Simulated scan of single mutants.
Amino acid sequence: MRSVRVLGAGVAAVLLVGGGAAGADAAQEPEADLAYHGAASLTSGEVDLRFTPRNHGPSAVPDATVRLRWSEPLADRQELPYGCARSGARAVLCRVGALAADEAGERIALRVQLRKAPTEVQLEIDTVWSSGAVDRNPDNDRQRVLILDTGDAYYF
């Protein structure tokens, strides 16, 4: 780190250049590793989804939000559980809540109706907010699941 002296109007100040407070703040950011595991099924255009969020740590997360996106548009009317809200034609956001380090959160279950009854739909799940926690392993909090209209459960 080097210092630069700035003089002007009879006032002297010292600025720290490089590696200052921003570097210290970055080192203090909490780190959490969020993941989602569950199952989804498709029957006649209705997707039944249930999953459990998990924080592999090392820090707790005071709150988080997960995004669920479908490859097909959702029907206009949906009955979503408390904590979930529609976000566009193909997406729903759900509040995950607080997650302690190395703990599973509350199970999230919802049923959505697609606009049409496709033979398959792809579901993408990812974290969109984690209270400022840094996830250095984001691969396991992003899931892609192909769900066929068989009524069978597809696990992720």
Score class of each variant (00 low, 15 high):
2 R>Q: 12
4 V>H: 06
4 V>L: 06
5 R>F: 04
8 G>F: 01
8 G>Q: 01
9 A>L: 10
12 A>L: 05
12 A>F: 02
15 L>W: 01
16 L>D: 10
17 V>T: 13
17 V>C: 05
18 G>Q: 03
18 G>T: 03
18 G>E: 12
21 A>D: 07
21 A>R: 13
22 A>C: 11
23 G>Q: 04
23 G>M: 03
27 A>T: 06
28 Q>R: 14
29 E>V: 14
29 E>C: 09
29 E>A: 13
35 A>C: 06
36 Y>L: 11
39 A>P: 01
39 A>C: 07
41 S>P: 02
42 L>N: 01
43 T>V: 13
44 S>M: 03
44 S>K: 13
46 E>S: 14
46 E>A: 15
51 F>T: 11
51 F>L: 15
53 P>T: 15
54 R>V: 10
54 R>H: 13
55 N>I: 07
57 G>E: 05
58 P>T: 15
58 P>N: 14
59 S>M: 06
60 A>L: 09
63 D>W: 02
66 V>R: 00
67 R>H: 06
68 L>N: 00
68 L>I: 10
68 L>W: 00
70 W>R: 01
72 E>V: 03
72 E>Q: 02
77 R>A: 15
80 L>C: 04
80 L>H: 08
80 L>W: 03
84 C>A: 09
85 A>V: 14
86 R>D: 09
87 S>E: 11
88 G>E: 11
89 A>T: 09
92 V>T: 12
92 V>G: 05
93 L>G: 08
95 R>M: 02
97 G>L: 04
99 L>M: 12
99 L>F: 01
101 A>P: 02
102 D>S: 14
102 D>G: 10
102 D>N: 14
105 G>T: 11
106 E>D: 14
109 A>W: 04
113 Q>T: 15
113 Q>I: 13
114 L>G: 00
115 R>P: 07
117 A>G: 15
119 T>H: 09
119 T>K: 12
121 V>T: 14
122 Q>A: 11
128 V>S: 10
130 S>H: 04
130 S>C: 09
131 S>T: 10
131 S>N: 10
131 S>G: 14
133 A>S: 14
134 V>M: 08
134 V>Q: 04
135 D>Q: 06
136 R>P: 02
139 D>C: 08
140 N>Y: 12
141 D>R: 06
145 V>Q: 10
145 V>Y: 01
146 L>R: 12
148 L>P: 09
150 T>F: 03
150 T>E: 02
152 D>N: 11
153 A>M: 09
153 A>K: 11
155 Y>R: 15
156 F>G: 05
156 F>H: 08
